[in-house]
């Protein structure tokens, strides 16, 4: 198995990125950040938060749970927390885990391949979570 990033530029890779975008953008508002967190965060994309926060809400959440920047939108983190707590198996939702910062060098790459080939280093993250639980 090679490095998933070596295929960038090939027609197949571009097609895959397009496919991923078409699959995830209409439903989740995917921004092709390349390090997908949907599965960790109750199927809410943190990149749709105007501050793109990956580790919890800012201090400006309105009393009705809506975003300070976009009053018509439910704060992404109110939603992440509610959905993950209610619908996610306990072993999938790690409320206190610190998610690493976005890697902007992976912008517009395929997060699926990045996951498959561990470009996003999720394996190390899961190991860290496991180590903390013990």
């Amino acid at each position: 198995m090679g490095n998933a990033l070596e295929w960038i530029g090939s027609k197949l890779y571009t097609g895959l990125v397009w496919f991923e975008y078409c699959a995830k953008h209409p439903i989740f508002g995917c921004r092709l950040c390349g390090t997908c967190k949907l599965h960790d965060l109750g199927l809410t994309c943190p990149m749709t938060c105007p501050k793109q926060l990956r580790n919890g809400p800012c201090g400006g959440v309105r009393a009705n749970g809506h975003c300070e920047v976009k009053p018509e939108m439910e704060c992404r983190w109110v939603r992440i927390e509610r959905r993950a707590r209610k619908y996610w198996p306990k072993s999938w939702w790690h409320p206190r885990h610190i998610n690493p910062p976005v890697r902007w060098d992976l912008q517009a790459t395929s997060s699926w391949l990045n996951y498959l080939y561990n470009v996003d280093k999720h394996k190390e993250e899961y190991e860290e979570i496991k180590a903390k639980q013990q």
């Binding site: 580790n55 809400p57 201090g59 009393a63 704060c75 206190r96 610190i98």
Partner: peptide, 23 residues
């Protein structure tokens, strides 16, 4: 760091503080 106990999601705020302590 800072924290806001007066904004939703209220139950998550202490956990978020825990993240800051861990950090």
């Amino acid at each position: 760091a800072v924290e806001n106990p007066f904004a939703p999601p209220y139950e998550y705020r202490p956990i978020r503080l825990g993240k800051k302590v861990d950090a």
